[in-house]
């Protein structure tokens, strides 16, 4: 099965939401700052629940936060 490369717009969304810091976002979704850093870098694919929590903080749809960049065979 091809592996999906999931990317995200969190950095841009943080900027659009008053340049909230990674720590502030981490506090809002109740994870550590390290987890936000890992998600932003694309090093960690969050659970569906955390993905929805992030979308709720930014008041956008899930697809506006996460998207599939490409799939590798």
């Amino acid at each position: 099965m091809a592996k999906l490369l999931i990317s995200n717009n969190i950095r841009r969304l943080r900027f659009n939401h008053g340049e909230i810091t990674q720590q502030q976002l981490a506090d809002r979704v109740e994870v550590s700052r390290q987890t936000i850093i890992a998600i932003e870098k694309g090093n960690y694919a969050p659970s569906l629940e955390l993905a929805f929590r992030l979308a709720l903080v930014f008041e956008v749809s899930l697809e506006a936060v996460f998207f599939v960049e490409k799939s590798t065979p």
Partner: peptide, 8 residues
């Protein structure tokens, strides 16, 4: 100490 989350 930082909270322990799903990634941890």
């Amino acid at each position: 100490a930082p909270i322990t989350d799903e990634r941890d």
